[in-house]
Design a protein around this nucleic acid. Structure first.
Length: 821
RNA sequence: GCCGAGGUGGCGAAACUGGUAGACGCGCCAGACUCAAAAUCUGGUGGUGGCAACACCGUGCCGGUUCGAGUCCGGCUCUCGGUACCA
């Protein structure tokens, strides 16, 4: 018997126990069935679940449950992205070892995820900080070292001179000071490990074209991030010197507009010149005191100092002053650029400030005038004031200039990418140890497979902020592989993006302790639906794509791309700002679950906005979601008995009021199905509310068996289409009108096309595009009778008056627009 | 700075390829029930003018295309996300 009251706590506990006891969400490979791998980005165990998690995981769960009801073999796993900086910060501040802190958080958050009723296969759970997980990425890394896809080189980091340690960009404030010391941070070069992602740039770029299930915005961001460009690399000789400077440009058509050359502060030419130039030396030192973040560098005021040398223009032979400038990046291209202030914004800004000549060498192709003194003209056009290269469009000028430089043996066309190799070294403790050993001469020895994993010691104490393993001989002392010589372990750890770049594959075979992956990965992969925050649009999602290709090329997976469909969910806001501890505007999901139950929280989160948009938290609207579930409960309480005893809807023609109920049911179901397919769940719920409202209001008495059958049909559809969103209450309601079957596997309802057919249709009448009347016409009425009907409407007659109808536009089943003159 | 997204009632939003702007919900107002309140139910609710039927205005701003623009095009503006060592 149904409870009079909707009691979410009882229902949810009972249903969750049932799911656990029947292992409802444990899945195995079944080649006979279509598989569906649904994955939500696993959380960093930061403490408790926040609303962003709840939103992410509810969206994923709705998709997983929906796909299951479509009959697919659905895998939905969950785990923990457990390495990272916050654990270390907590350790430093609260004197708790990061491992302890992390595992406690995992426990808390796992309990909360279970309370929310997510359909996870918990048997596959792992945390990336477990040696059983990271040993495989250590093993894989040694393979990459052997292949030359992992290598070591110098790279710039933020150095805190007081703490004597490297800082993350996040640990450097907007004034360029360290988070703990407050000391000005310096740029410093240290040797670090890199993965050769640039070797896969072309494939990462072209692969985007086939990712039809990805949002265009994300693909565009990745394309721009990779930043493939075609240009020319050429050499400037330096007046009175045997040195030269290589530059890369995508605008060889502007070559005759070069009025100076700029190099990065770290460029060898600048560094060498600085030994006898105190002003330059001071400038270079000053450039060291900036954050390595791109945003900080680009927002800087454009500054520079002459190097004291002059480059020779390769065509005109003109002498061009060489500047060291803070807006030139050593890490991109050659670390030096030709400057054409007439046709580049940054060059223009710099030239204006330093009184450097600005020349126009491109003009608009349509002959219109531009004023170079107002700002750079950066569009493509026709060359001018360019001597032998005059009057050419971009393509012709490109070829002419490239050919000329090539003829001199001074240049070549070149394709460049903006993408840089992935620096994976972190000078931090709470991460996966990089599995290499160095001998006395700094030679690299990957740790042999039989010696893996290199286990990160967990029982440690911090002194200051420095990674404890860097001063722990028990950790770093090692024997050089293949010898009896003493060596030293690498004490840097991997970037945590390393772990999150392949976890989706490991979920397929998490219990395998003899191999990184096995054939089960090829059953489940690629992930059919990936769900996570838009903030991961570039880095995580690009690294994961790259890593998947590395796995493929090692023969571990047979697909090219890891994620077939991608849904990027928006942020959770309160009072217009992102919910965050620092802003103090968080809402604790736990308190909401305690108060209303998981179904209410899930319903609110899915109803408040479409998944890819931001979601504004509203306490009153949560209460509204709860109110709806109570009404739903009451509707079934009132009608469950009749529905349970009712038969199928008969094939014969129904009385018109019952027929109308069915028409509405199937119209709404058609909308619901379309909205499920396009991941727009807020309108799914709105449609269910409409259906609930009309079913509540309709007087079902006196319709006999036919009425009961229609009512039963409605109640069955409603409980099924709501099941993915609010799985607990629907489980209970389903049990009231059915016997024994599992709602989880109930087949998804189909639209009865016959029920959609109606005899009349409402149309709107417009006069000159403005709404003036409404008419009802037969569904199969022809244009002429629709027009007659519109002209018979008194309001329409009033608006038309004596005017002549010049045009009549009819949109079938929608509107008729009468254009009068 | 650069790249990406967004701006619609008091609020969250809807409007699938240009075709009734505001579905659904929150809030608010009124009514029913109640000694009263809460809960629940019923009705109303973009703005301005009007006793009214009705009229005009209205999707960030300026302009354009179209019989018709929230939707398409050009130009601006504000907010948010990313910006390579936060995850």
């Amino acid at each position: 018997m149904m409870d009079e009251q909707y009691k979410p706590d009882q229902i949810e506990r009972g249903v969750q126990r049932h799911w656990t006891e029947t292992r409802s969400f444990q899945v195995t490979e079944d080649p006979a069935r279509e598989k569906f791998y649904c994955l939500s980005m696993f959380p960093y165990p930061s403490g408790k679940l926040h609303m962003g998690h709840v939103r992410n995981y509810t969206i994923g769960d709705v998709i997983a449950r929906y796909q299951r009801m479509l009959g697919k073999n659905v895998l939905q796993p969950m785990g923990w992205d457990a390495f990272g900086l916050p654990a270390e910060n907590a350790a430093i501040q609260n004197r708790v070892p990061p491992a302890k802190w992390t595992y406690e958080n995992i426990k808390t958050m796992q309990t909360q995820l279970k309370l929310l009723g997510y359909a996870y296969d918990w048997s596959r759970e792992f945390a990336t900080c477990q040696p059983g997980y990271y040993r495989w990425e250590q093993w894989f890394f040694t393979k990459l070292v052997e292949k030359g896809l992992a290598y070591k080189k110098m790279a710039v980091v933020n150095w805190d001179p007081v703490e004597q340690t490297v800082l993350a960009n996040e640990q450097v404030d907007s004034e360029g000071r360290g988070w703990r010391s407050g000391a000005p941070v310096e740029r410093r070069e240290i040797p670090q490990w890199f993965l050769k992602i640039t070797a896969y740039a072309d494939e990462l770029l072209s692969g985007l074209d086939d990712l039809d299930g990805w949002p265009e915005a994300v693909k565009t961001m990745q394309r721009n991030w990779i930043g493939k460009s075609r240009g020319v690399e050429f050499t400037f000789t330096i007046d009175g010197s045997s040195e030269s400077i290589d530059v890369y440009t995508t605008r060889p058509d502007t070559i005759m507009g070069i009025t100076y050359v700029a190099v990065a502060a770290e460029h060898p030419i600048a560094v060498a010149a600085a030994t006898s130039n105190p002003e330059l030396a001071a400038f270079i030192a000053q450039c060291r005191n900036i954050n390595t973040a791109e945003a900080s560098i680009e927002k800087l005021e454009k500054k520079g100092v002459p190097v004291g040398l002059e480059a020779i223009h390769p065509v005109s032979g003109e002498k061009l002053q060489i500047w060291a400038a803070n807006f030139v990046l050593m890490g991109y291209g050659t670390g030096a650029i030709m400057c054409v202030p007439g046709h580049d914004h940054r060059d223009w800004e710099f030239a204006s400030k330093h009184g450097i000549d600005i020349r126009q060498v491109v003009r608009p192709a349509d002959g219109s005038a531009v004023d170079i003194s107002d700002g750079a003209y950066v569009e493509y056009g026709l060359t001018c004031n360019s001597g032998q290269f005059d009057g050419l469009d971009y393509a012709a000028a490109f070829d002419a200039v490239a050919g000329y430089l090539q003829g001199l043996g001074r240049g070549l066309p070149k394709t460049n990418v903006r993408l840089r190799d992935w620096g994976v070294s972190r000078q931090r403790y709470w991460g996966c140890p990089i599995p290499v050993i160095y001998d006395d001469e700094e030679n690299v020895y990957p740790v042999p497979a039989e010696d893996l994993p290199v286990v990160l010691p967990e029982d440690i104490a911090f002194e200051g902020v420095k990674s404890p393993i860097k001063s722990d001989p028990e950790f770093y002392r090692a024997r050089v592989p293949g010898t009896d010589n003493a060596g030293v372990r690498e004490t840097d750890t991997f970037d945590t993006f390393f772990e999150s770049s392949w976890y989706f594959a490991r979920f397929c075979c998490a219990d395998n302790n003899r191999a990184m992956l096995d054939e089960r990965a090829n059953y489940w992969l690629p992930v059919d639906q990936y769900v996570g925050g838009i903030e991961h649009a570039v880095l995580h999602l690009l690294y994961a794509r790259f890593f998947h290709k590395l796995l493929r090329d090692e023969g571990l997976v047979d697909s090219d791309e890891p994620f077939t469909r991608l849904l990027t969910q928006g942020m959770v806001l309160k009072d217009g700002a992102k919910m965050s501890k620092s802003k103090g505007n968080t809402v604790d999901p736990q308190s909401m679950i305690d108060r209303y139950g998981a179904d209410t929280v899930r319903l609110f989160v899915m109803f408040a906005s479409p998944p890819d948009q931001s979601l504004e938290w509203n306490d009153a609207a949560v209460a509204g979601a709860h109110r709806y579930l109570r009404r739903l409960w009451a509707l079934y309480l009132k009608n469950a008995k009749a529905a349970r005893e009712a038969g199928e809807v008969p094939a014969r023609e129904l009385p018109s009021d019952l027929k109308q109920q069915r028409t509405q049911l199937h119209t709404i179901l058609a909308r619901v199905n379309a909205d499920y397919e396009r991941n727009q769940y807020n309108t799914v719920i709105a449609a269910c509310m409409e259906l609930t409202n009309s079913t509540e209001r309709f007087d079902w008495s006196g319709h006999g068996d036919e009425g009961a059958a229609v009512l039963r049909e409605i109640l069955l559809v409603l409980v099924k289409v709501l099941a993915p969103v609010v799985p607990h209450i629907t489980h209970a309601l389903w049990a009231e009108i059915n016997d024994g079957t599992e709602l989880l596997d109930a087949p998804w309802p189909e639209v009865d096309e016959q029920a959609l057919v109606t005899e009349v249709v409402d149309m709107v009448v417009q006069v000159n595009g403005k709404l003036r009347g409404q008419i009802q016409v037969a569904t199969d009425a022809d244009d002429d009778s629709i027009r007659q009907c519109a002209l018979a409407d008194p309001k329409v007659v009033h608006y038309i008056g004596d005017a002549r109808i010049r045009k009549c536009i009819i949109v079938p089943k929608r509107l008729i627009n009468l254009v009068i003159g």
